[in-house]
Design a protein around this nucleic acid. Structure first.
Length: 354
DNA sequence: GAAACGCTTCCTACGGCCCA
DNA sequence: TGGGCCGTAGGAAGCGTTTC
């Protein structure tokens, strides 16, 4: 079923691989062409409701929740009954005051109350490498701590969305490793003062520790190949990317190999690339042609040669160009740019305000 | 008719921590 | 060593209106 869904975009993709397609267009419209119950996981990081306008087109706080609710309604229609929707939302302040905006919580409550979503679990993405900000309240006036946590809502249609935490076990702590080695030495099974009855099975080696809902993932990729290739080719990369470890966690946790993963605000297509590495099928929708065409560079495994540049520039400048990313990859490595596949099939028109 | 005034928009200064 | 900021204040610039 999922392969059929990828094939639906045969005529309007920007680039494709054997497992997925990147499509330029308004994701609200593109989602409407997908059938009900057809996507296993939608994971995305939409433009945030910031006080300060950003170049990738974030919305005003006042309109934001209404705007994003249109998308979440359509996501609910297309995900499978046991599917999940994971949405990453950064915090923001009320304009002009050091008071936090409640937009991310408001969105969550309205999704559940008005659209019938279930909050499977709330996650928090802690990025220790985040710069102290916002400047006004944290750096200058020093009246607030730095904001280094995003809320990540894991929502589902049903009470029991497909999930297997055994796929995302983390490394045991040093203390736990010692305990497993010689449990008798490090703890005594007994009823604790808290009332919890801790049995001798506490010393079992389950292959790793159960992860918590605080995901510590530094967002530093100064040495990433994506940025390097963008720089080499003089291309402007997407300014607000999330680290691949974030979608990786949820893709492993909530899907099986061969399942379909969709990102409706794909940006630099971190999600599609990550899904590809994990042997899932993927679709990526992004309104901005330039950002999505630059994202093809993620799929290169060798540095691009100068001969590839003219073809690549055609992809950026010609809104009707299409490309086979795996062919692109192969040809750039083999130094035979002739085989890069470019066609002239029209794609949907953009919507101006999203 | 020139200078002053008032409003809006644009631009820049401010300020720093962690990771690979 | 390079890369990431999820705000505000205030001055400059631009432009129309008012005052002398």
């Amino acid at each position: 079923m999922t392969l059929k869904n990828i094939n639906m975009f045969e005529k309007n993709f920007l680039y494709k691989t054997k497992k997925g397609k990147a499509i330029v267009g308004d994701s609200l419209e593109l989602m409407k062409s997908l059938p009900e119950n057809s996507v296993n996981l939608v994971i995305t990081s939409p433009p945030f409701a910031l006080s300060r306008p950003k170049e990738y087109g974030n919305k005003d706080q006042a309109d934001y929740v209404d705007w994003i609710l249109e998308f979440t309604k359509e996501v609910k229609r297309i995900i499978t009954d046991d599917g999940s929707f994971v949405i990453d939302l950064g915090g923001a302040y009320e304009k002009g005051t050091p008071i936090r905006s409640l937009y991310n919580f408001r969105l969550l409550i309205r999704m559940c109350d008005e659209q019938g979503w279930k909050l499977a679990e709330e996650f928090f993405w802690y990025n220790p490498a985040k710069l102290p900000s916002p400047i006004e309240w944290v750096n200058k006036r020093k009246i607030r701590a730095k904001d280094s946590v995003n809320t990540v809502w894991w929502l589902s249609k049903s009470d029991f969305p497909k999930a297997d935490v055994k796929k995302v076990l983390t490394e045991y702590s040093d203390r736990m490793k010692k305990l497993i080695e010689d449990s008798a030495k490090y703890y005594t099974p007994k009823k604790r003062p808290s009332g919890h009855d801790i049995s001798d099975r506490f010393g079992n080696d389950n292959g790793g520790a159960i992860p918590s809902n605080l995901l510590q993932i530094p967002n530093t990729e100064s040495n990433s190949k994506y940025l390097k290739y963008c720089k080499d080719l003089g291309i402007k990369g997407h300014p607000a990317r999330f680290p691949s470890k974030l979608p990786e966690f949820f893709i492993k946790f909530l899907t099986d190999e061969g399942d379909l993963v969709l990102d409706i605000f794909a940006g630099s297509n971190t999600t599609g690339w990550t899904a590809q590495q994990l042997n899932r099928k993927w679709l990526s929708f992004e309104l901005d042609h330039q950002y999505l065409s630059a994202s093809v560079l993620r799929f290169l495994d060798k540095e691009p040669f100068e001969d590839v540049r003219p073809k690549y520039e055609m992809l950026q400048l010609d809104k009707n160009a299409q490309i086979d990313a795996e062919g692109f990859l192969k040809q750039s490595v083999l130094f035979e740019p002739e085989a890069i596949y470019i066609s002239t099939i029209a794609r949907p028109k953009r919507r101006a305000n999203a």
